[in-house]
Write a protein that binds this DNA or RNA. Structure first.
Length: 849
DNA sequence: TTTAGCTCAATTTTT
DNA sequence: TTGAGCTAAA
């Protein structure tokens, strides 16, 4: 018996009990939607006697799917039955891949397909551009890729692409998209978008198949519905909507306030239109939050309230009031990192928290660096989520490409990737020749790259005897792998590849730190393979195996082995970094988590640091173009998502100056600060620490008018930009270990720079990297004496202040400060875009009217 | 063929 | 700042 009385609130109970017919659940952050969903699924099985295999639940991440699976299993095991199979719980993509594999005969593929990731896709698109003689300078391949993927999100097929008259780009887009699709099929490959689209088209065009799946999955659940795109929406409609003869037993859960993937094709209308697509849909709102303190919820609620396009809903909680949200202003990104880390240490010690309970969220991956530096120095374990996926590392991708080419020699992208890796003397010229042959041979036909390689190897007259020989060796090598593969375990094949190609040998020859890291990654990859192998041989039921086995193997054991490789490749393509996170059994060491705001969705932590809250960075703004309100609203939702991840303690941080792409940039605090009521905020101005204060006094002039007001600290300080700020005075010491003062930007990685803050001349410090770009920043330290109490006159040279200029990149601006003399003179410009930038005067002098 | 050195671009990215 | 991709020289 599923316990519906305890542990569920009234609304959740309604949602669980409403099993028949369409149901839209609007679930605010932390309102227990996963609990609702898992209970609902269990209820269907236990109480409604629905066979588990008739239940489908779709999520966006493997992690969400895994969590749901686990929790459903727990409930079911703790009650009784589990023998009736399991509900199908997975991501949209894994669901569609399984569907396509089961229906392989109804797809254009004659044998199991491989999945192309973004970089594979880009390679293929570049190849198409070359083939069609389209200049990739004029028509950026990445832009093409973006548009193709967008089209796929919108379920737009090549023939439906609209060509705008006189618009070459749209014309080319159509051609490229068309050709790209052909190439994909010829390569026996699918990209992420195509996984969904092909499944959609199959269900759309084949009534028999559609009916089978409609009958199979009688109860459908969709998580994060606000993030579904058009293609996903249509797919769901084919399974459940009345207009397609569906059963309408569909329960979608979403929250428009947490829609943060609009830029990627997520269509908010899917939620708004739900009641049209499914007339008579019930709507349930879950508004009680179980995660955060009242204070955090209040702050987040006030922020999201500023969005115009949203249905009004108000989260409430019975949780404690909790402590104030802490908003901290730091001197620069280094100081920001120092403070975060020192707070982590302090709280970990005083509140006996494990490092697991802390998370740092930033807008862009690039921001992780400063935190990594400090965390590493302080020997605090940390884990970065996202960024470069493990499977995206060069060495891993190389091996995976061998794998892919072995099971699917039609995969030209993978073949081209590895043909000269490690180097076998097949260089650019040879590759161009091969490419040429491929194009010629492939006209009107279906000659794969692999076949071209074989021909070239056999016929020295086609190229030269050297090239033929070298290509021949590669062909022979690959052929051997292909022949051996069915008899080998994953790890055996892996070692065979490494041995025969001397991949590791080559890496060791390099002897660099980077090469060593790659060898280590390969070792990790090896254990991953073994793990997969063991898991697979233990658990995977025989039924799952049938599909790939068509062309392999002679006995049952070999069938299993032959199955391993395709399955591994598939999961490596669909896996993400997020998956590793938080699985309590995965031996997860206690580490501070670093991730982008996007990755943070769906997670929660007791202590959250939201860093880099500065105009331009967050909200992200391109200074050179207009930012539409909708974009700001999406940024605001992102802010809301980030804030509502916090259970007890929330820090919102911003830096005054930050290095962005190697330039020093003066940052204004994020507008989102203005939206949080004063009462729930505690303002800690760390840029007014004793030593830093000197820096502030000097450089605060950079702000132009009003700057003087800011330099006094601890008394009636009012930050106009922050729009708030009851002053609590300086709290805590300047956060730094061993008395090292807060230092200036990234340049301060060498200890000497920080000395600029006090007495030591920078020339005596570890200025070991005087690259031109860093000199710019360093000179701010060493020459302009901004850190000295007595600022030289030139610092405030009035002659330039107030003058107008027009920058080709940043637009119109006014000089608000000037410093240095002669060739070193710098000016700080306040641009209309709210950004401030500092330039060497001689570089920008020509932009003044 | 390889590689050193240059220019250019650059969010977010569940799959 | 980093990285990818291209050109020129070894």
């Amino acid at each position: 018996m599923i316990d519906l009385q305890t542990g569920l609130n009234e609304r959740q109970r309604v949602a669980v009990l409403c099993t028949e017919g369409p149901l839209l659940v609007i679930a605010g952050a932390g309102a227990g939607k996963t609990k609702m969903l898992t209970t609902r699924i269990s209820y269907l099985i236990e109480e409604c006697r629905v066979p588990p295999y008739q239940i489908l639940a779709m999520t966006f991440t493997n992690k969400a799917a895994g969590e749901m699976k686990e929790r459903v299993e727990k409930i079911l095991i703790s009650s009784r039955s589990s023998a009736l199979g399991a509900p199908e719980i997975g991501t949209f993509h894994s669901f569609c891949v399984r569907l396509l594999r089961r229906e392989l005969l109804n797809t254009p593929f004659t044998k199991p397909f491989v999945i192309y990731d973004d970089s594979d896709q880009l390679s293929l698109i570049k190849g198409v551009l070359r083939k069609l003689n389209i200049d990739d300078k004029a028509f950026n391949p990445k832009a093409m890729q973006g548009r193709i993927n967008r089209a796929k999100c919108d379920a737009v097929e090549p023939h439906e692409v609209e060509v705008v008259a006189h618009d070459l780009f749209s014309k080319n887009l159509k051609r490229v998209y068309e050709e790209y699709q052909k190439e994909l099929t010829a390569n026996n490959a699918l990209d992420f978008g195509e996984i969904i689209c092909m499944a959609y088209r199959l269900l759309r065009d084949r009534l028999d198949v559609r009916e089978r799946y409609q009958q199979r999955f009688r109860y459908i659940h969709v998580d994060e519905y606000q993030d579904t795109n058009r293609a996903q929406y249509l797919l769901l409609s084919l399974l459940a909507a009345p207009r397609n003869g569906g059963h309408q037993n569909i329960c979608v859960v979403g929250d428009e306030d947490q829609s943060i993937y609009k830029w990627r094709g997520a269509d908010i209308n899917n939620i708004l239109d739900f009641e049209n697509e499914y007339p008579g849909a019930k709507v349930v709102k879950l508004e009680q939050n179980y995660r955060s303190t009242k204070t955090i919820l209040e702050a987040a609620g006030k922020v999201i309230r500023n969005n115009k396009s949203r249905k009004d809903k108000t989260l409430w909680t019975e949780n404690e009031e909790g402590q104030s949200v802490i908003r901290a202003q730091l001197a620069d990104e280094r100081a920001e990192a120092e403070m975060v880390v020192s707070e982590v240490k302090r709280i970990a010690a005083s509140d006996a928290r494990s490092f697991n309970e802390f998370a740092i969220f930033y807008r862009t991956n690039a921001q992780s660096r400063s935190f990594e530096d400090v965390l590493r120095r302080e020997k605090i374990p940390y884990q970065i989520i996202g960024g470069l996926r493990f499977y995206d590392r060069k060495e891993i991708k190389d091996i995976l490409s061998y794998f892919k080419a072995i099971i699917n020699p039609s995969d030209s992208v993978s073949l081209k990737r590895i043909i000269n890796v490690p180097g076998r003397g097949i260089g650019k010229t040879s590759l161009d020749r091969l490419e040429q042959f491929h194009m010629e041979a492939n006209i009107g036909g279906r000659v794969s790259y692999w076949e071209v390689l074989q021909r070239v190897a056999q016929d020295p007259a086609l190229t030269s005897s050297t090239v033929a020989k070298r290509v021949g060796l590669f062909v022979k090598l690959m052929q051997r792998f292909i022949d051996e593969q069915p008899r080998l375990l994953l790890s055996e094949l892996y070692h065979l590849i490494l041995d025969e190609t001397e991949y590791v040998v080559e890496l060791r020859k390099e002897g660099t730190e980077e090469a060593n890291a790659r060898v280590q990654n390969l070792e990790e990859f090896n254990s991953l393979l073994q793990e997969f192998e063991e898991d697979f041989l233990e658990k995977t039921p025989e039924i799952e195996l049938a599909v790939h086995a068509v062309h392999a193997a002679h006995d049952a054991h070999d069938v299993r082995k032959a199955e391993l490789l395709p399955l591994f490749i598939e999961q490596s393509a669909l896996a993400s970094d997020l998956d590793k996170l938080g699985g309590d059994k995965s031996g997860d060491t206690s580490a501070v988590k670093l991730m982008t705001l996007h990755s943070s969705k769906g997670l929660e932590f007791p202590v959250v640091f939201l860093v880099g809250m500065e105009e331009g960075l967050f909200p992200s703004i391109k200074p050179w173009e207009e930012t539409p309100d909708e974009d700001i609203e999406e940024e605001r939702r992102l802010c809301y998502v980030g804030m509502t991840r916090a259970r007890e303690t929330l820090y919102l941080m911003s830096a005054t100056i930050r290095r962005i792409w190697g330039n020093v940039s003066y940052q204004q605090p994020s507008r989102f600060f203005d939206e949080i009521p004063e009462e729930v905020i505690e303002f800690r101005d760390f840029s007014h620490g004793s030593r830093v204060n000197e820096y502030r006094t000097g450089s605060s002039r950079q702000y132009g008018s009003g700057a003087a007001d800011r330099s006094g600290y601890g008394n009636g300080y009012e930050n106009r930009d922050a729009g708030m700020g009851k002053v609590v005075g300086r709290i805590g010491p300047v956060p730094a270990g061993g008395g090292a003062p807060i230092s200036f930007g990234g340049a301060a990685r060498s200890a000497g720079h920080s000395a600029g803050l006090t007495t030591e001349p920078s020339s005596g410090g570890g200025l070991n990297d005087p690259a031109p770009s860093s000199v710019d920043a360093n000179s701010a330290l060493s020459k302009s004496a901004v850190f000295k109490n007595t600022a030289p006159k030139t610092l405030f040279a009035a002659d330039w202040v107030g003058r107008q200029m027009s920058h080709p990149e940043y637009g119109k601006g006014t000089v608000v400060a000037s410093e240095g003399v002669g060739p070193d003179q710098k000016v700080t410009i306040q641009f209309l875009s709210r950004q401030q930038k500092k330039f060497l005067l001689r570089y920008v002098a020509s932009y003044f009217g």
